[in-house]
Write a protein that binds this DNA or RNA. Sequence first.
DNA 1: ATTGAAAATCTCTTATTATGAGATTGTGCA
DNA 2: TGCACAATCTCATAATAAGAGATTTTCAAT
Lengths: 253, 253
Amino acid sequence: MKPSNSLERVLAVLEVFSEERLEWTSEDLMAHLGYSRPTLYRYLKILKDAGLLMSSRNAGVTLGPKVVEMDYLARRSDTLVLSGQPHLKALTARYSCNAMILRWYGNKILCVVSETSARNLVSSYPRGRPMPLGRGAIARSIMAYLPRARLMPLIEQNLDDLRSVGLGVSVEEVRQSMKRVRKAGYAVAFGEVTAGAVGIAAPVLDDRGAPIASICVTITGAQVDGAGIDRIAADVKAVANEISAVRADSDNS
Amino acid sequence: MKPSNSLERVLAVLEVFSEERLEWTSEDLMAHLGYSRPTLYRYLKILKDAGLLMSSRNAGVTLGPKVVEMDYLARRSDTLVLSGQPHLKALTARYSCNAMILRWYGNKILCVVSETSARNLVSSYPRGRPMPLGRGAIARSIMAYLPRARLMPLIEQNLDDLRSVGLGVSVEEVRQSMKRVRKAGYAVAFGEVTAGAVGIAAPVLDDRGAPIASICVTITGAQVDGAGIDRIAADVKAVANEISAVRADSDNS
DNA sequence: ATTGAAAATCTCTTATTATGAGATTGTGCA
DNA sequence: TGCACAATCTCATAATAAGAGATTTTCAAT
C-alpha cells in the first residue's frame, strides 16, 4: 500500500484529504507525505493543472473543480446508478422512506445515489459519504456475503462496534450472526446508525456471488411493525436481485 | 498542454472521459493516448488501485468510486459552496426560481451548487455539468470581467454562438457588448440556454477583480417583467458582492 | 513605494526508474 | 476442454524524476 513509484506518489497526495482534514498547507503535506520541497511543488503543480487540486491563498490546498466534473460524469456512467434509480423511486413511492444504493469498494461502503420521500427523516449519508463498517444493516448485508478470508479481519477490526449492536461477543459469534443474515438474504438494523431509524438492506451481487453494493431502505421506527418490515424487506430483496441480474459485470480492482 | 512527463501522462487518462464518451476500452485508450500496451495497463492499474477508475467486465473502463468520495469532500471544502448556499436558499425563498453558483476554471464554467423553488423549471445544469461559453447570462457575466487578452480568443472561438444571441456581428461589437455588461454589473439572457427561461447572473470576483464564479437566477420568462428582472438583478448582484467580499482567496493555477 | 519574510520555482547533476518489444500468463466464452 | 482475447511479466536501455541549494516571486506590513 505504500507508494513505490512516482505515479503512485502523485496520487497519494489525493489520499490525504478526508472529512477531518479538508485543507492542507504545503508544509504539512511535505511532513505528512515525506516528499522534498521541489518534489511536492512539482506534484501540486501537476495536480492543480489537472484541476484535481486548487490552492486558495488563505485556505491552503483543497480538492479542485475537476473532481466535481468527474463526479458528474461518474454519475452518468455508473450502471448501478442508472439501473438502480428507477427502483429507488419505486420504493420511495411505496413507502415514506429513504432508499439508497451503496457501493462496496476497497474496504469502504459508499453511497452512490439516494432518493427520499420522508420529509422528516434526514439522511446523513448523501452521495459520496463513506459508511461505518461496524454498524447498520447496509454493512451487514455486504459483510455477510464476503468470503470467510475477507470477512474475518473486518470483524476483528470492527469488533467493538459489532458487539455494541448485539451481534455477538466473540468473533465467532459475530460470524454466526453474519451467516444468519446471509440465509435471510437481507439485514435489519434498529437505530444503529441514526437513532429512531430502521434500516433494511439487501446486497447486490455480481455474477460470481460477490457483493458489489447494497440496496437500503431507511424508515422511521415508529412507522413500522414486524409485518411492515417483512414487506419492505421482500421489496428490497427483489430490487437487489433485479439489479444483480441486470449487471453481469463486476468492478474487480 | 501535451503531457510531457509520466505524471501528466497518467492524469491525461482521466481527461478522456466526457459526456460523449463515458466508457473506454483499453484498445481505444491506447490508440487515443498513444501509449504502449504495457504502459497503458500500468497506468490503468495505478488509477484503478486509487479508485479513480474501474473496469466492469463488459463496459470497459469508467470513472471509479474514489471520484464520488472526493466530490463529497470537495463539496465540504469549497468556500464558494459553503458561503454561497445560504444565499441561494434566500434567493429561492424570495422568488420561484433556480439559483446557482458556477465556478470559472480553465476555460470552463462549472455548476458547483444549485437550489430550486420552481417545481416546473428543470435545471439542465446540475453540479458538475460544464456550461457553454457562448450562450447564457452566466457566461457573459464572467467573460465581461476577463482582461482583454483573455477575453478576445474566447470571443473568437465562440463567435457563432455569441452572434446568434445578438451580441454583435464582429468580434469588436461583441466586446462592446461585454463592456456594457461590465458596466451594468450583471447579465440577462432570454431563453439562450433553456427556451422560455430568463437567466440573470452576476460575477463573484477575487480581491484583484478577476472573476472566479457567477451567481445565477433562472426564472420562467412568463413570470417576470422588466421591473421584476431589475429587482432580481439587484439581489443577485448583492449576493455576488457579498460572496466576493467574504472570499479573500483566489484559485490561481 | 519599500522592505522583509515566506512561498514557490529554478538549476543542474546523479541515480533512479519508467519504457516498450516481445514473450508469457490469465480469463472468459464456445 | 480448448480457443481467443485480455492482462501481466522480463529485461536491457534510454529517459527523467529527485533533491540540495540558490533564486525568484508573492504578499503583508511599514
